[in-house]
Amino acid sequence: MALTAEEVRHIATLARVAVSPEEVERLRVQLSGILDQFQMLNDIDTSDVPPTAQSLNLHSVQRHDEVQASLPRSEALKNAPRTEDGYIRVRAVLD
């Protein structure tokens, strides 16, 4: 299955990953090659088969809702690139 350059750019936009024109072309070829490998799944009959999300079949694991010590704000902000007044500083999302 061959992807177009436009499809690759669309996926990059969805994934919020900036890609150069050279990367678009390389990814187009490589992703198309990988997608070709997926075709063999079409030959497998799964009409009566339920999907499995993980192997343990665990359901609704719950715990008591108890107050526990949490990370101090100073620790939580330690790795943030930009902070101000105890908050993470972000860029304006509205112009």
Binding site: V49, T52, A53
Partner: peptide, 13 residues
């Protein structure tokens, strides 16, 4: 893709 893969996963298990 994703749903199909999750079903084949069941078969493999």
């Amino acid at each position: 893709y994703y749903l199909k893969a999750q079903k084949v996963r069941t078969l493999i298990q």
